[in-house]
Amino acid sequence: MSANRPPVLAAGALVWREVGGKVQVLLVERTQHRDHSLPKGKLDPGETLPECAAREIEEETGLTISLGAPLGTTEYRLPDGRDKVVYYWQAKVDDDAVSAAAFSPNDEILALEWLPLAKAKRRCTYEHDVTVIERFEERLAAGHAETFPIIAQRHAKAADPFSWEGSDASRTLTSRGERQARLVAGGIAAFAPERIITSNAVRCMQTVAPLRQLLGIEPKVSSAISQEAHDHPELHPRDEVERRVGKAVRKRRGIVLCSHAPVIPEIVTAVVHATDALESQRTHRASMLHTAEFTVLHVSAGETPALVALETHSPRER
């Protein structure tokens, strides 16, 4: 990477579907370059990478997608000498989504093309796109092409507990915290969770308010994932976090759990246990969240749930 200038960040997705039991992936032909590649685009100010990926796919192809597990990054040098890093996710679409997509050739994208995996790799202009398709092929072979998200979110920046006159649970978000909550909402929504569970602390309920507006899902308020439950386990069922996460895994249901710093590791550990995964430095780091950060744990939707990937995102404050 260039030491002089920060890299250009972009995001995209390997969009796939099944036709007659066969997998096809979507390539775009760019109007000016007349090349064939996976759809992607540059990050907007204040945007998280998952939000960018979902937005760019919709803008370039007309498809509304929900992101699955990440497929890593590609890195290359731009003609002006700057480095570019592109983040990719896998995203399955069905016939209804394809039929509803409104696309017409424009000055950016000339055409869309659905191709079988082998033909798509031959059609790609750039080897780094072939690499992403090959990563997806490995997921497909392992039975992990379809996943659902368990998302652990720490509440945004709240009022100082040492100067707050009310109870700890009544502390509200600061203006910075309100901004953080808005900035991360689109990134979480990009994974299309089906349910939102929040601690009964005001700061947690305020944190998920922008997400509620985006998804149209009424959050379920729970004292089981509160700071009080962690500090006074004798007053709350000790296995409640494990029970809630285990239920989501069994039902293959994507959920968001908005809670507090000491509770986030319990949520991550519960996912590890529910998927028979191993705790590691990666899962430990994924549970150590700063305010408003969120970790997405991607669980295979196959017959046997498995922890396929995990990723952590922060509000991109300017």
Rank of each mutant, 00 (worst) to 15 (best):
S2V: 08
S2K: 07
P7G: 10
V8K: 08
V8C: 08
A10Y: 07
A11K: 10
A11Y: 07
G12A: 15
L14E: 02
W16D: 03
W16Y: 15
R17F: 11
E18D: 15
V19C: 13
V23H: 05
L27D: 00
V28W: 01
E29T: 09
S37K: 14
L38G: 06
E47I: 10
E47M: 13
E47Y: 14
T48N: 11
A54Y: 06
R55H: 11
R55Q: 09
I57H: 02
E58Q: 14
T61Q: 06
T61W: 02
G68H: 06
G72Q: 15
T73Y: 07
E75I: 12
L78Y: 11
R82P: 02
V86D: 03
A91H: 07
K92P: 06
D94A: 10
A97Q: 14
A100I: 05
A101D: 04
A102V: 14
F103W: 07
S104H: 13
P105G: 09
E108V: 14
L112M: 08
E113F: 03
L115V: 06
L115R: 06
L115K: 06
P116K: 05
K119E: 15
A120H: 00
A120I: 01
A120N: 01
C124N: 09
H128C: 07
E134R: 12
E134A: 12
E134I: 05
L140M: 13
A141D: 11
T147K: 01
F148P: 00
P149E: 02
I151M: 06
Q153E: 08
W164K: 08
S170V: 04
R171N: 11
R171T: 07
T172A: 09
G177R: 04
R179L: 12
R182N: 13
V184K: 02
A185F: 11
G186L: 04
A189E: 04
P193I: 01
R195H: 12
R195Y: 08
T198C: 15
T198I: 10
V202C: 12
C204G: 02
Q206I: 05
T207H: 07
T207Y: 06
A209E: 14
A209G: 06
L211I: 06
L214D: 10
I217K: 03
I217Q: 03
K220N: 13
S222D: 11
A224I: 04
A224Y: 05
E228L: 14
A229R: 05
H230F: 15
L235C: 07
E240G: 09
V241N: 04
K247W: 08
V249L: 09
R250A: 09
R252Q: 06
V256S: 00
S259H: 09
A261T: 14
V268A: 08
A270M: 00
V272F: 00
T275Q: 02
D276E: 12
Q281R: 13
M288H: 11
L289Y: 01
H290A: 10
A292M: 09
T295N: 07
V296M: 00
H298C: 01
G302Y: 01
E303G: 03
E303V: 04
P305Q: 03
A309P: 03
H313I: 04
H313Q: 14
E317Q: 14
R318K: 15
